[in-house]
């Protein structure tokens, strides 16, 4: 089923991990990770080594047209409940009004909405066009935090950061306490109404391990979502171009979660 190549240090670590009630979760450093191998079978029966990849998604806000294809694809691909209360990814529409000069402010009120998460696309903002200062769409998804608060607070180790950069939920092990939902600063988690466990974006783990793109990236018509593998960046990989040329930002940087999902062209109003 799977072959593990472990060196001695790892075996020791494993023992410690299993035996010690007080052992702290071993967090491997980058250098250690580079040496490791752990093979398992992906969905088509090929060997897949999570230590050989580092998946990443970045977003170019300037390219998002708010068609909501990604929201649809995500729900269909991942059996996300169809109601307007549960989303692994959604799109927000920001409309910033012009300021009344008398107030001395640069800009007026910010109106955000996400009707049905953008599943059905977006109508034009309700604000009359002449009052709009600027308006844009922002796709949201799991921010793939480097220091993910959700896996930090999971009491049983049912949600975790994988070596290849995803943050997953073990549906067979999650006891459904909801702590991770509270801990996620980005509102990217929800309790699955049928499974009764936490659920979130998996970066379409079943797809990326097969060498496919996540569903949202697959259907995005404008390449607003760019997906790639940091450990295998080709010379003109769109991800490389993005990282090298765009001035990108992350969401809520003050929380120290260090999201790996970066946004190019992020507006200050986006939270």
């Amino acid at each position: 089923m799977k072959q593990t190549k472990t060196n001695r240090r790892e075996a020791l670590k494993k023992l410690a991990g299993l035996a010690g009630a007080v052992a702290v979760a071993p967090k491997t450093t980058g250098a250690e990770e580079a040496l490791r191998r752990y093979l398992f079978k992906n969905g088509v029966g090929e060997d897949y080594d999570p230590f050989d990849h580092k998946w990443l998604m970045v977003i170019d806000i300037e390219r998002c047209i708010g068609c909501g294809m990604c929201v649809r694809a995500c729900k269909a691909e991942n059996e996300v409940p169809r109601d307007p209360l549960h989303f692994r990814t959604w799109v927000e529409q920001y409309t910033i009004k012009k300021a009344d000069v008398a107030t001395g402010r640069i800009e007026g009120e910010t109106i955000v909405r996400s009707p049905n998460g953008g599943y059905d696309g977006f109508p034009p903002p309700e604000v009359p066009e002449e009052e709009i200062l600027r308006s844009f769409f922002v796709p949201k998804l799991c921010n793939l935090c480097h220091h993910s608060p959700c896996s930090q607070v999971c009491p049983v180790g049912a949600t975790f950061d994988t070596p290849d950069g995803a943050v997953l939920v073990d549906y067979e092990y999650c006891m459904g306490c909801g702590f991770c939902v509270q801990a996620c600063p980005y509102g990217c988690r929800y309790m699955h109404p049928e499974r009764h466990t936490a659920d979130k974006c998996t970066l379409c783990y079943h797809r990326i391990t097969r060498g496919l793109k996540p569903a949202c990236v697959e259907v995005c018509p404008t390449q607003a979502r760019i997906f790639g593998d940091l450990k295998h960046l080709g010379p003109d990989d769109p991800l490389r171009t993005f990282i090298e040329t765009k001035k990108a930002q992350s969401l809520k940087p003050h929380l120290g979660t260090e999201p790996r999902v970066l946004y190019a062209g992020l507006d200050k109003e986006v939270r």
């Binding site: 009630a21 007080v22 052992a23 702290v24 979760a25 930090q152 607070v153 999971c154 009491p155 049983v156 180790g157 049912a158 092990y173 999650c174 006891m175 459904g176 306490c177 909801g178 702590f179 309790m191 499974r195 009764h196 466990t197």
Partner: peptide, 17 residues
């Protein structure tokens, strides 16, 4: 959500939580 799994919190307690 899964009360029957509550024992996990004692068996594999995640120390950062």
């Amino acid at each position: 959500g899964h009360p029957e799994r509550c024992y996990e919190a004692m068996m594999t307690p995640h120390m950062t939580s």
